[in-house]
């Protein structure tokens, strides 16, 4: 197990290093001088030069990379060109929206998908199964931002139950905050839940045909007990992997959904960074997103090994 952990850690470090090189290289390719862009027309060359120094644009690419990567590691993400505040401050503010949104969506999709997928597997071939398969097929095909627009149309415009977007902030109360995140979370969760329900169904089906299920029945467990105690737990292993993979789709989905609902989250921050050509923000936030994806996949890998001892041994 220790050796497995060490190998995964090494690979984690290498992945992060490679990813940081890619992001840095892409940002370096940007045409034009960011300092001149930020100061606008009519700026004196001295002012531009001073700002270039301040932004760390002087020096060789190597020293720039080292100071950028070193900054990322110590929580110094640079100063935003447009907001003129530290990017770390912006990120912390935006995380208060993005993290709860992602967690909410993940919770919704898991709570819906696992029982539904299991039900479909246990009643394989029944009308319930057909309905689940049909609905999830549709759920995968629906773009989440279109679903979001439909939700706004029905619940905000026709029924007037919730606002059409924006976020009041957590200061006004937990429930109002959660209320503002509900439609976005539902819109994000739908395609995730569809995929997850299908994975759960096939994972449970797989376990149902295993010998240990027959043993469980033979020792006197009812079908229901056997499915819950043995089928469900074994089916969770592939489901866990998919959950990890979905995390990156959830992040990408959040970029679009936050824009549909005008939520001040990380996705909207990076999108505004592009339209305002604020490269410090874009580079740092993209790197953070990639960092999150790599770390989550690492954690899933470790959880996987904890859940299934066969995977701990080197292949």
């Amino acid at each position: 197990m220790l050796r497995h952990l060490a190998e995964r850690l090494l690979s984690l470090g290498l992945s992060l290093f490679a990813a940081s090189l890619v992001v840095f290289a892409v940002i370096e390719l940007v045409p034009g001088d960011p300092a001149a862009f930020m100061l606008g027309m009519g700026a004196t060359p001295e002012a531009i030069a001073a700002l270039r120094r301040e932004l760390g644009l002087e020096g060789t690419p190597l020293t720039r990379y080292l100071s950028w990567a070193g900054g990322m590691l110590t929580g110094d993400f640079g100063i935003s060109y447009t907001y003129r505040v530290p990017v770390s401050q912006l990120v912390l503010d935006r995380l208060q929206v993005s993290l709860p949104l992602a967690a909410y969506a993940l919770l919704l999709s898991t709570v819906i998908a696992l029982p539904v997928g299991m039900l479909a597997a246990v009643r394989r071939g029944s009308a319930t199964d057909m309905a689940v398969m049909g609905t999830t097929q549709l759920g995968i095909a629906v773009p989440n931002f279109w679903f979001a627009i439909l939700l706004v149309l029905v619940f905000s415009i026709k029924l007037r139950w919730v606002g059409a977007g924006g976020f009041p902030g957590w200061e006004v109360g937990l429930w109002r905050g959660i209320g503002a995140l509900t439609l976005p979370a539902v819109a994000l969760a739908l395609p995730q839940a569809s995929i997850l329900a299908r994975v759960m169904r096939s994972a449970v089906l797989e376990t149902l045909s295993q010998d240990y299920m027959r043993t469980a029945r033979a020792k006197g467990l009812s079908r229901r007990q056997a499915v819950f105690r043995h089928g469900f737990r074994n089916a969770l292993i592939p489901v866990l992997t998919i959950l990890g993979l979905q995390f990156s789709f959830l992040l990408a989905g959040a970029i679009i959904i936050e824009n549909v609902f005008f939520l001040p989250g990380l996705g909207r921050l990076v999108f505004q960074g592009i339209t305002q050509r604020d490269l410090v923000v874009v580079g740092s936030v993209v790197m953070l997103l990639v960092f999150a994806v790599i770390v989550v996949n690492f954690l899933v890998d470790i959880a996987y090994a904890l859940a299934d001892p066969r995977l701990r041994r080197p292949a």
């Binding site: 992945s15 490679a18 990813a19 890619v22 992001v23 892409v26 940002i27 390719l29 940007v30 045409p31 990156s248 789709f249 992040l251 990408a252 970029i255 679009i256 990076v270 999108f271 960074g273 592009i274 050509r277 490269l279 874009v282 993209v286 997103l289 990639v290 994806v293 790599i294 996949n297």
Partner: peptide, 19 residues
């Protein structure tokens, strides 16, 4: 491959459009 998988497609697109 693993490295590219770590970048969600939309994030790649965002990087490319940013540049």
């Amino acid at each position: 491959n693993d490295l590219i998988f770590a970048f969600p497609a939309l994030v790649i697109a965002i990087l490319i459009t940013a540049v």
